[in-house]
Nucleic acid binder design. Structure first.
Length: 438
RNA sequence: GGAGGGGUGGCAGAGUGGUUGAUCGCGUCGGUUUCGAAAACCGAUUUGCCCGAAAGGGUAACGGGGGUUCGAAUCCCCCCCCCUCCGCCA
């Protein structure tokens, strides 16, 4: 969520930055208009509330005095608010009730505006960082680095669906398309990948392993930014429980410190978690659906960081390096893309995508998306940090995949295949898989 | 699913209709003292929003929401969470 105060004070900056994301900036004028109305009425409401509070206190004191001596005069505070001295206690009470009703109207009107502002803000994306390249679509993303060489074959490399049994037909029978069913070798490889990822991040990168719920409340998804805007992307249970299946471990991890104020010296807090991820992929029908390129349920190990605003940028680089390290250890060629303003995710200010090359499909596949959210999620989740001088400010949150299993598996299968159709397991993974060959 | 207990400031824990944003303690920070430290003593110590250049002022919040009332942490209703016991189940 954006800061209404910042929008109020810097409408031009906000408009300019959001325009680079393709947002209609009329929304900003709209929210500012409502904000102005809200502040005016809110101010009046608070003034009146203050008067009422004073009068109520005075009234209470008067009632006490009347008990002792029935002729006690009404206190000055009460008289001045009512305009004239009340005839008696009942008279004062009736007049106060009337003022209370009037005050109530103001309060309710203010609440309506407040609600409207809230909704508007919830639908606005984060401001892109100044570092993010300006562009309209994925075609304007910038390759920041490349590592490793795409493998060369003296035969036509097969796609992953021709190298191993993906179980899409079984999964389809059980759940529908987009739900692979691994049996035997790939099931074991999947488990090896998960363990390898977790061990690397916990033992060498300093992340604390977490085990999280896979179903969460609406509020949890609002904290991390998926709701209310991306409701259609979400699997959801029926009204008896009304829970949502998580689309990524980012969701539960971001809410771990919701409503907390963290001491600066405790930052950065680094978490990693393995979870399945559930995505309806509502807007992506028909795109890259072959094999296990795009599925409704997949496994992923996620990295998540909470830190100070000062350390946000540095942590973004560090987190991205942690994800890249996985690819390097698996000897997979990859490139780091910096997403342009038109392609950055809703809550991110800056984002690196890691793409691995897969020889069979001859494509660069996104296996990780490392985002710096600045204070966007922290404002929604109310995660703050406090320095030695007691200065409190919103935390910065970051997260990235480290990594997503299916596409990593695709790259391993397709890049390490031999002419006779076998697949060699990368050295770093062999002890996890338990064999040199698939 | 059933029965009961509970949710108050960083922690612990008072407060059951009126001047209580909230006693006391612990912790933390600053000061006095000390060569330094400990102890002792003194002071400070929740968060959000609005007005204001600032100083400062106002307002809200005692799990969340609604209600009663001139006035609610305190009374009523709904929901959430935690704990104990029972039931069911991997």
């Amino acid at each position: 969520m954006l800061d209404i105060k910042f929008i109020r004070e810097n409408p031009d900056i906000v408009k300019r930055k959001l325009a680079t994301r393709g947002v209609d900036t009329a929304a900003i004028d709209e929210v500012l208009k409502i904000d102005e109305q809200w502040r005016a009425i809110k101010f009046d409401a608070e003034q009146q509330q203050g008067d009422l509070n004073k009068a109520s206190k005075a009234f209470g004191a008067w009632k006490g005095a009347l008990k002792k001596s029935p002729a006690a005069p009404a206190p000055a505070d009460l008289t001045s608010l009512l305009g004239a001295a009340p005839r008696n206690a009942d008279d004062a009470k009736a007049q106060l009730a009337k003022l209370g009703e009037k005050q109530d109207h103001y309060e309710k009107a203010a609440a309506v505006f407040e609600q409207q502002i809230e909704v508007q803000l919830l639908y606005l994306p984060n401001l892109p960082s100044d570092h993010a390249p300006v562009g309209k679509s994925e075609h304007d993303n910038v390759v920041r680095k490349a590592h490793g060489e795409p493998p060369k074959f003296d035969f036509a490399p097969k796609a992953h669906w021709d190298l191993a049994e993906l179980g899409n037909e079984i999964g389809g029978r059980i759940s529908g398309s987009g739900f692979p069913f691994f049996r035997g070798r790939l099931a074991r490889l999947e488990r090896a990948l998960i363990n390898f990822f977790l061990d690397l991040h916990t033992r060498e990168h300093g992340y604390t392993e977490c085990w999280t719920p896979f179903m969460v409340r609406e509020e949890t998804l609002r904290n991390s930014g998926q709701l209310p805007k991306f409701r259609e992307e979400m699997y959801r249970t029926d009204a008896r429980d009304d829970l949502f299946m998580i689309p990524t471990a980012e969701v539960p991890l971001t809410s771990v410190h919701a409503d907390e104020i963290i001491a600066d010296e405790q930052a950065p807090i680094r978490y990693c978690a393995f979870t399945p991820c559930f995505r309806r992929e509502a807007g992506a029908a028909g795109k890259d659906t072959r094999g296990i390129l795009r599925v409704h349920q997949f496994n992923k190990v996620e990295l998540m960081v909470v830190t100070t605003p000062e350390e946000g940028e540095a942590e973004h680089e560090r987190l991205t390096r942690c994800a890249e390290a996985v690819l390097e250890k698996l000897e997979l060629p990859y490139r780091r893309l910096e997403l342009c303003t038109g392609d950055i995710g809703f809550g991110a200010a800056r984002c690196y995508d890691l793409e691995v090359y897969a020889a069979g499909v001859d494509k660069w596949l996104e296996v990780s998306s490392c985002s710096h959210f600045t204070d966007f999620q922290a404002r929604r989740a109310k995660i703050r940090v406090k320095d030695k001088d007691k200065k409190t400010r919103l935390a910065h949150t970051l997260n990235g995949s480290g990594l997503a299993c299916p596409r990593t598996m695709i790259a391993i299968l397709e890049n390490n295949q031999t002419a006779d159709g076998r697949v060699r397991i990368p050295a770093a993974l062999q002890s996890y898989y338990g064999s040199e060959w698939l």
